[in-house]
Simulated scan of single mutants.
Amino acid sequence: MVLTIGILALAGLTLDGGLALSAKVKANGQAEAAARAGAQAIDLSAYRSTGTLQLVPVQAVADAQSYLATVGASGTVTVSGDTVTVTITASQNTQLLGMVGISSLTVHGTGSAHPQRGVVTAIDP
């Protein structure tokens, strides 16, 4: 009986660990995409007048949060200078570890982005 429980716990670590890793990769991807969405909130009047890229922080946060809502995730968005950082915390329900009292695992994903200029010179063919 003890051996069976030990084997099931080991199988649970393998299965549920893999599911948690997959959830972490997904959370990182969502956080990175949300940060990129927020980094598109460029102050166009400043860019047109001075050529400097700067963000509109309120719009950057709103755009990143809107992206998170679209993909069904929630997280925190911060803007520091020209960098948008998104942090997601998600919960992954366990399949086998529930038998030993672990019903879910918490995963975190983080992504950052800042605006970039596009092509500024033409390339001769």
Rank of each mutant, 00 (worst) to 15 (best):
residue 27 A to H: 06
residue 27 A to Q: 03
residue 11 A to P: 03
residue 25 V to E: 02
residue 34 A to H: 03
residue 22 S to I: 06
residue 10 L to A: 15
residue 31 A to S: 08
residue 33 A to P: 03
residue 15 L to H: 09
residue 33 A to E: 10
residue 26 K to T: 01
residue 24 K to H: 08
residue 11 A to F: 15
residue 31 A to K: 04
residue 12 G to T: 03
residue 15 L to W: 11
residue 17 G to L: 13
residue 10 L to W: 12
residue 13 L to V: 10
residue 34 A to L: 09
residue 5 I to E: 07
residue 4 T to P: 00
residue 32 E to Y: 14
residue 19 L to D: 07
residue 5 I to C: 13
residue 13 L to F: 12
residue 33 A to V: 09
residue 8 L to C: 07
residue 9 A to G: 12
residue 27 A to N: 02
residue 30 Q to W: 04
residue 34 A to T: 08
residue 5 I to N: 07
residue 28 N to Y: 08
residue 32 E to G: 06
residue 35 A to E: 13
residue 13 L to E: 07
residue 9 A to K: 05
residue 13 L to A: 14
residue 12 G to V: 00
residue 25 V to W: 03
residue 29 G to K: 10
residue 18 G to M: 02
residue 4 T to Y: 11
residue 6 G to Y: 07
residue 12 G to Y: 00
residue 9 A to F: 14
residue 25 V to R: 08
residue 22 S to P: 01
residue 11 A to Q: 15
residue 28 N to S: 13
residue 11 A to I: 11
residue 29 G to L: 04
residue 27 A to I: 02
residue 13 L to P: 00
residue 29 G to S: 06
residue 29 G to Y: 00
residue 28 N to A: 11
residue 15 L to E: 02
residue 5 I to G: 11
residue 23 A to K: 01
residue 34 A to E: 04
residue 21 L to P: 05
residue 12 G to P: 04
residue 20 A to K: 00
residue 31 A to Y: 02
residue 5 I to K: 12
residue 10 L to P: 06
residue 14 T to P: 02
residue 23 A to C: 04
residue 12 G to W: 05
residue 22 S to L: 06
residue 17 G to K: 14
residue 12 G to N: 07
residue 19 L to R: 14
residue 27 A to E: 00
residue 4 T to I: 15
residue 8 L to D: 05
residue 16 D to C: 07
residue 23 A to T: 01
residue 32 E to T: 15
residue 15 L to D: 12
residue 30 Q to L: 11
residue 8 L to Y: 08
residue 23 A to G: 10
residue 27 A to W: 01
residue 26 K to N: 09
